[in-house]
Write a protein that binds this DNA or RNA. Structure first.
Lengths: 138, 138
DNA sequence: TATTAATTGCACTTCTGTTGCATTGCTTAT
DNA sequence: ATAAGCAATGCAACAGAAGTGCAATTAATA
């Protein structure tokens, strides 16, 4: 039983060949992926399978969904410190306007926001757009 | 020449009957609207017309687009202090999980975010989700 | 091994955003 | 005042992503 199989298994996900491959692929990338990205990488597999696999990952809490404002949903593996389900202390995401990649800044938490009377925060989503470190290096 | 006509005219938008109606409708609402919302309100008009009208408003800087994470784009009139085009000091938006409305918190600016080395911010989008003042009153 | 449940593949549907083109309506110069 | 020209609108259709129903296959378990 490999590392990944154990990971899936311990989260109540049956470690099928497909799922292991998809998990491995997502783990290799350091940026959030759209369904189409995964589709490109696994052209032999059905879109629906990939879709449902990622949704399963999400339900089981090992992947979180990101809306980076591009109109396409992105997904990224939850890393240590991600805490996307446990508390409201959510990390922020960065979208590069140059290379179009979206990355999780797991260490960077969303600062506390003061809301007007009567408003109660349950969740927050902060996407900063600009130029990422790779692109600014040139 | 009415208030609205002057507003449109001074922003380089020809004040047609349709546009005046749409502007008036958006001004009445205190929350951001999706295209379908406007569509519901003007069932006699074409979707395309509404779409292009709002896009025109956006281009001319009297409306700003909001991605509240629901997957549907919302639009809201720019109010004094909105500054959506001028500087990067953007205000935040609140999405109510109960009534599903999205509102601009024009007075509440996005706090400064420290980014890792090499990252440069150009823009930011912060959506706080929770219960709005109307819904929490019950 | 037989039974049962979960996973995958295929075909569609829906929804939103968007564009091309013909037509209508408004502006302006003659 | 009228014709020419441009902007606005209506109609039709397309594109892309998200999501669903169902049959077929695969894996787990008794």
């Amino acid at each position: 039983m490999t590392e990944i199989e154990r990971k899936l298994d311990s989260n109540g996900i049956r470690p099928t060949a497909m799922r292991i491959l998809i998990y491995k692929y997502m783990a290799e990338k350091n940026n959030a992926l759209a369904l189409t990205d995964v589709e490109q990488a696994f052209q032999k597999a059905e879109r629906t399978t990939l879709y449902r696999t990622i949704k399963t990952f999400e339900e089981k809490g090992i992947v979180h969904q990101i809306d980076d404002g591009t109109g396409v949903l992105k997904y990224a593996l939850c890393e240590p410190g991600c805490n996307c389900e446990i508390d409201r202390d959510l990390h922020l995401h960065f979208h590069c306007n140059s290379c179009d990649k979206t990355i999780c800044l797991t260490q960077h938490k969303i600062p506390h926001i003061n809301l007007p009377e009567g408003f109660m925060a349950e969740d927050a989503n902060l996407v900063v757009k600009g130029i990422c470190d790779s692109c600014s290096a040139y």
